[in-house]
Simulated scan of single mutants.
Amino acid sequence: MAPGEKWVSVMSYHQTGSGGPEDAVCQYAGSRLWFRGPERSLDTPYMACVGADETFGRFVDRPFAAILEEKLDRRCLNLGSLFCGLDTLCGDTGLFKLITEAELCILQAPSVLGQTNHFYRVHSRRNDRVLAPTQDLIALYPEVDFADVHYVCHLMSLLQDQHDARFEIVAEELRRNWVLKIRDLLGKLKTPVLLLNLQVLRHQDSALQGGKMVVSITDQMLEQVRSVSAGYAQVSAFVSGHSDELEDMLFGTLQQPMAEHMIGPAAHKSVAEALIAPVRNLN
Rank of each mutant, 00 (worst) to 15 (best):
A24T: 11
V279I: 13
A272D: 06
L82H: 01
E54S: 14
D128I: 10
C90K: 01
H150E: 10
P133H: 04
R166W: 03
S216C: 09
L86T: 15
T116N: 06
T253W: 06
A171D: 06
F59I: 05
A109H: 04
L113M: 11
G264S: 04
V50A: 13
D164Q: 07
L180Q: 15
M47V: 14
G30Q: 09
E22M: 10
L89H: 04
L254E: 15
A2F: 06
G241A: 07
K6W: 07
V25K: 04
V271E: 01
I67Q: 12
I217S: 13
G51A: 08
A267N: 11
V239W: 00
M213R: 12
L208V: 11
F167C: 14
Y151S: 05
I169Q: 09
E54G: 06
D136S: 14
L155I: 10
S227I: 13
A29T: 13
L68C: 10
Q115M: 08
H154W: 03
G37Q: 00
E101V: 03
A102L: 03
T116V: 11
R125W: 09
L95Y: 00
G114I: 00
N78D: 13
Y141I: 02
Y232I: 09
Q199A: 13
A2D: 14
I263V: 15
V149A: 05
Y13P: 03
C90G: 02
E69R: 00
I138H: 00
K97S: 13
S227A: 12
L79P: 01
P38G: 05
C105K: 01
G80D: 08
P142Q: 02
K212H: 12
M11H: 04
E39Q: 14
L98C: 01
R40D: 08
L222I: 12
D43S: 15
V50R: 11
I263M: 06
L131A: 08
E245L: 11
D87N: 14
A147M: 07
A171Q: 08
G187L: 08
L282M: 15
P38D: 05
L282F: 03
M156H: 05
R32H: 07
Q199N: 14
W7S: 14
C26A: 07
V239Q: 01
L137I: 06
L186I: 12
A267M: 07
Q255K: 01
L140M: 14
L86A: 14
M156Q: 02
G57W: 01
V122N: 04
D219E: 15
T88Y: 00
S111G: 14
R62S: 13
L174S: 07
K269I: 08
T134G: 10
P278F: 04
A233W: 03
V215D: 12
V279S: 07
S18P: 06
R176Y: 01
H154D: 13
L33K: 04
T134E: 05
I263G: 05
D53A: 12
Y232K: 10
D53N: 15
S31T: 13
R75G: 09
L33R: 10
N117Q: 10
G57K: 01
R280D: 09
C49T: 07
D244N: 14
R58P: 00
T191Y: 02
R129M: 11
P45E: 05
L158T: 08
P192E: 02
L196A: 08
Q115N: 06
L186V: 14
P257W: 00
V179A: 11
Q209N: 12
I217M: 08
Y46F: 09
R40I: 07
T88D: 09
